[in-house]
Design a protein around this nucleic acid. Structure first.
Lengths: 262, 262
DNA sequence: CGCAGGATTGATATCAATCAATAACGGTGG
DNA sequence: CCACCGTTATTGATTGATATCAATCCTGCG
């Protein structure tokens, strides 16, 4: 029954889809990273019409709220976010970290109700789509429809891995695993320099992701530091001894090939 | 480093898609349950060609194995199964229970590699599809493509809930929640009688699903029995005091409307 | 300067894992 | 028919990991 810091509770009750469009799809900020697949001219043309705007959310703001339906769903263009669920007593389970290229709010588009929330860790920019038009995508652009399924399947795969971690691994293993996981995802998106990264998450976030208490998380992190496996101060995180960290985590490099996005 | 019983380790290294077709799609055993949506004649016609056969797996047999790709994916027609991942040291995390209507092996169809295994708790019958033909479905039957996404999103939703449970709830709450969850899913498929059900799972399965030890699971179950919330002997399980069990579990009735299947 | 959010540390409590043994049951082979 | 064995369930004793409680400290910032 521990309190979640205010900065993590959404400031925006329900964001309004803004409006100004900085990025036509041809100049999507996601283009140009190796991991993201290229689109055909036709696909880009479709997406340009399918996209209804951009949404900016400031750090700490709410993007989607558990409970209701949402008229929109989004692709993350820039920034970091979290996807989470709350328990009545205030416990929070973070389900995943949201990074550029991730599709959020698909549940609302397909199943009608959001069963989780999304909020921003840093300032974020989203590409906005309309839920009620998702059928257009399925009927007119099967290749993109396939991509949506791909993204859903990949999210499921991450959750599987995550559940394995929380259910079966000890605290050291869980934490090492999670750090490597986040790092790998960030690296794919060009957010790292060598083995270093600017991590916009707190120990509380790690605790809430892994089902550990803040205090215990802190102790384990210090232990990893003292053992020379990682270094983390302020927001600067570094993998100091990758082989041993990977070994401790039981890390299996993800089979991540090229991936789609919307 | 506790051993998983042999009966749960697949006997069939890799099943061969049989063959004889008991059920043309018009007489699919899934039809007729309220929760499953009806298909148009056109959809049924397509599915009849898309389906390449049926697969029978006996209790304890393997359906899909972690690691490789699989040439097929399946819809569960009858029986109970589990979807799980193993750790090197033999720990097993059960990710979900598979019941009629569930689509399994989608990951292999979409992402090329299975990152989890599926095995049968009871004798099972599957409807078999071919991975390499999945594009046909997307290009020719957008409504079914949408259904596939629906199923993936729903699976993700269950995993979210599950992760919340394992990460944040205590053992009593987890177990009560899981029992209610399984019961609700089974009821939708006509597998219950009132508050009773023939449960083909062992305490070990519950333990492996919820990240608890077998011994502890046993104690909690007995505690729930002694408090008069449940009754479970042999395979017969009964919810004896639903209000209090739901209360303990923090149960929120699932928003389950009509759902698709393939 | 003073404050809030975040990190850290020590002491203690508790939940759940582990170790160890036994029991009930069904199947199997001699 | 009985002895044996594996699976599942059960119980007691003990250990261990992690949570909780309570301070303190640090740092960036208004």
């Amino acid at each position: 029954m521990r309190a979640v810091p205010k900065t993590d509770l959404g400031k925006n009750p329900m964001p309004t889809a803004s409006s100004a469009r900085q990025f036509p799809c041809e100049r999507c900020p996601l283009r140009g990273f190796d991991i993201f697949r290229n689109f055909s001219a036709e696909e880009v043309k479709f997406l340009n019409r399918f996209k209804v705007g951009e949404l900016k959310v400031e750090a700490g703001g709410a993007v989607l709220n558990e409970g209701g339906p949402s008229p929109h769903f989004y692709t993350v263009l820039t920034g970091w976010g979290i996807r989470y669920k709350m328990l009545e007593d205030g416990q929070r389970q973070i389900l995943n970290i949201c990074l550029p290229g991730d599709l959020v709010g698909l549940q609302s588009a397909v199943l009608h109700d959001m069963q989780h929330s999304v909020s921003a860790l840093t300032d974020m920019l989203f590409c906005v789509f309309e839920r009620r038009r998702i059928w257009e995508l399925y009927s007119k652009q099967p290749s993109l429809a396939f991509d949506v399924t791909w993204l859903a399947a990949r999210e499921e795969q991450m959750l599987d891995e995550h559940l394995l971690s929380v259910g079966q691994r000890g605290a050291k293993e869980r934490i090492s695993y999670f750090l490597l996981f986040v790092f790998a995802r960030a690296r794919d998106r060009g957010l790292t320099r060598g083995n270093s990264i600017n991590l916009p998450i707190t120990q509380q976030h790690i605790a809430d992701t892994l089902g550990l208490s803040l205090v215990h998380t802190n102790r384990i992190l210090n232990q990893l530091s003292r053992r020379g496996l990682i270094k983390w101060e302020n927001r600067q995180f570094r993998i100091a001894d990758r082989p041993n960290l990977e070994d401790l985590a039981g890390w299996r490099p993800p089979p991540d090939r090229e991936r789609p996005y919307l």
